[in-house]
Design a protein around this nucleic acid. Sequence first.
DNA 1: TAGCGTACTACACGCTTGTGTAGTCGCAAG
DNA 2: CTTGCGACTACACAAGCGTGTAGTACGCTA
Lengths: 199, 199
Amino acid sequence: MSSDLTARARIRDAAIKLFAERGIDGATIRDIAQEADVSSGLLRHHFGSKEGLRDACDEYALNELTKLSGQFSEFNTLDGLTPRVQQLQRYLIRSTMDGSPTGAAMFDRMLVFGNEWLATTNLKIADPEAFVAVLAVMKMSLFTMRDLMSRALGSDVTEPATWARMLQASLDLFSQPLITEEQAAQARAALDRLAAGEE
Amino acid sequence: MSSDLTARARIRDAAIKLFAERGIDGATIRDIAQEADVSSGLLRHHFGSKEGLRDACDEYALNELTKLSGQFSEFNTLDGLTPRVQQLQRYLIRSTMDGSPTGAAMFDRMLVFGNEWLATTNLKIADPEAFVAVLAVMKMSLFTMRDLMSRALGSDVTEPATWARMLQASLDLFSQPLITEEQAAQARAALDRLAAGEE
DNA sequence: TAGCGTACTACACGCTTGTGTAGTCGCAAG
DNA sequence: CTTGCGACTACACAAGCGTGTAGTACGCTA
């Protein structure tokens, strides 16, 4: 399919694919090399080590994402959400969860964007820091839980139609209150008890 | 701390802890044995294999959770959310993401509970299946993204106070609409275009 | 006391992992 | 032609993995 690319680029793409699918530790150098149709030595020749390869993937994914979809992870930029962008996001989030500093930086940026977005609304949030963090984490979960999501929906969420279905549902979720104010107040009270009463 | 337990129980607890922290593949048998202060052979003697240990942990975690907090993962059962329950949930979700059938069964149960809850409300959802799935996944994300969450909030979410802070924020999120109906309609249209127009 | 099963340990095996090393091929410069 | 350099491969190495095996210590029953 993309065998007209440089070997270096093929390795990078294969690594992003397998890292995203199996995690950083789960994808071996030999697997990646085979996926890219090169020897494992060449991988080492180009990227120095597995860590080096991962760093290169992090940087590439972050650059591509910012180039392709601007400040990604916002709902208004849904139109550019091609499978490729999905894969890059999925890789970067996976890398983040496995302790990548680049990924952590991305997360921080998501928090900044979230705060900016919050300022444009007239929502009154008691704890904006926590609010934005929860929101960011929940958005990311749509990528990390891809397998479970596909299972629940009965078809692969990588397909645009299924993906759209999932996003429609998240719109339902964010455009109306799910619990009443009384229920919320009740839960809040229970939480206060929890936070104060227990050691 | 809990060295008065059976060796078998100590191994199980150590496995749940390390599996939750590092993932199934990331936690080695030797690490778990050392954490439980036994030899790695004893682990094999009691559980047969790493897979057997994992199965035992799955079953134990699921039983404990249903025993401790009823149908967990609902907002009204927040009071029983001790650090121990948190850890069990975190383990089970991690095991689920790494392909455990027990975990998948738990996820299915969450979907059933979600549908039942949805029936008690008077929400009109176009695609209940997707809606409930998204909701379930987002709830689970609060456990899977623990590290990022702690990072964003500046203190470990395992602490009850920080955990409560996070849940307060999620109450804010679910008790009011975050986007207006116009914004939602606009996004919906964009999604329809995406689902239909692209191959 | 003898016998036996269970909890438990020490140690070795084979495999896979990331990494290191030596060497081949092709091409551009002198 | 040959020299050099980067792309690329084949192969060996040490370490860590899950697993298998042999053996010890202890408590129960006859």
